[in-house]
Design a protein around this nucleic acid. Structure first.
Lengths: 249, 249
DNA sequence: AAGTGGTCTAGACCACTAT
DNA sequence: TAGTGGTCTAGACCACTTT
């Protein structure tokens, strides 16, 4: 039995969130151990003096966050930390850009180019078809941090300037502002060493370890629109994340 | 106004999930466009003939999945795809291991070692303190795919075998089975080139681009327990993910 | 049979936004 | 002021697991 732990019903923070946070903190403190069963929903309901649906939402929150596991008819269990739950977010990657005033995008090249075999295959078009080649350098202060090379399928009905604004305006793409004609995308991160072109632009030694983020975007007809790659120095960047029970949201 | 779109209340799939899926499919079809407003909750409630809480759960689901955005008092809006929502999951990394029968873990070394300056700093102990060094090779068939080097803080009250089983049993760690004394961890992915030790073990050329996954784990006293790194060939592995509206869950 | 999680109802009240 | 999302109640019924 729990002490009717005080949740503040007048607070800005909704009850279900307060309860979820309290439970998470109790796990972090070691009161509820990984692998063990939480008090049942009806016990929790009495302890916090709320309705079933509210306790349900708390548990659902913790479930979504991967903090607990539920087995119907059996109970709710604290989930031990596991590597297969780990996710690396691209936010980190974007902090470079988010900086705003410090960050400038330099357009190195905009050009119509005939697709070679690689580009044709990646974009699902025929060799020799026209594409728009875009090359950009993202600078942080005077420092080049990100090199972006992208091929758009050339659409004669859409002027290049507009295509550039809409599809590849970095800010829009990264932070998802405004309307978009893109339905979905596929992304991949590779470990590489810089080639000469990339090394020159990033002001780095050739053969330096680096990350390459490859992307393909599709429109609402499921046709490919763009293929491209971001490259960044491996010695100036790492993807980081945390798992487990840290107390707060 | 919507046609009272049929949701099957006798189905295995709960109503709130059916509705969320229908809405997601409508977005994928282009019926609801990115940036535009969804029908209001009361409209949806009438259209699907369910109670407010049920429609609420559907919207909450889509919210959690990053499919929509809500603005109180204004409406629910379809979220344009954005790179800052992208997450790369380590599942991919683990598929290598999950394969089970094909996969074998070869323990190369277990040894007590005095901490040098790097290890001491990483584990928050003093130089010269004892640690347990573990070196493992994960093989897929005959093929070495992953090299793991880990340092545990030496705990004289816990025999090495047990420490090895508990803290670093790879299966437990990765899939989160059983009980665990680990509270949280910090992880980072670096782009590197293989050093001689790694190249030899992974049967790869030195200087090959590679990923390194560094990890630190903490116990419930917030003391560091283990520091280690997984290394894998960059030419045999990439992290992949998708964003956007693909229709299904 | 008793206890557990899972879904759902039909309202209520509140906070916020648009007009 | 009317419409929107956000929270919450107090029950009901179901499916499942444990004993």
């Amino acid at each position: 039995m729990e002490t009717p732990e005080g949740i503040d019903k007048t607070s800005f923070e909704p009850a279900y969130m307060q309860i979820a946070n309290i439970i998470r903190q109790r796990i972090a403190k070691g009161e509820y151990r990984p692998g063990s069963r939480l008090p049942s929903e009806s016990e929790l309901r009495k302890a916090y003096n709320v309705s079933p649906m509210t306790i349900r939402r708390s548990i659902n929150l913790l479930l979504d966050q991967g903090v607990v596991n539920t087995i119907q008819g059996s109970g709710t269990f604290v989930r031990p930390i596991a590597l297969d739950a780990v996710a690396f977010r691209l936010e980190e990657f974007n902090r470079i850009i988010k900086d705003a005033e410090q960050t400038k995008v330099k357009l190195l090249e905009v050009q119509i180019e005939r697709a070679d075999d690689v580009i044709a295959r990646k974009l699902g078009i025929s060799q020799g078809d026209r594409t728009v080649l875009l090359r950009r350098l993202i600078l942080h202060g005077m420092d080049p941090v990100l090199y972006h090379k992208e091929h758009l399928i050339y659409d004669p009905t859409r002027p290049i300037v507009e295509a550039e604004m809409e599809v590849t305006s970095l800010h829009g793409l990264i932070h998802g502002t405004g309307e978009s004609n893109l339905k979905r995308g596929e992304l991949a991160i590779e470990a590489i060493v810089l080639n000469k072109e990339e090394a020159d632009l990033l002001n780095a030694p050739e053969m330096l370890p680096a990350f390459r983020l490859e992307h393909i975007f599709y429109d609402f007809y499921d046709d490919r629109v763009s293929w491209g790659r971001f490259t960044c120095r491996g010695d100036r960047f790492r993807f980081t994340t945390e798992i487990g029970f840290s107390g707060k949201t």
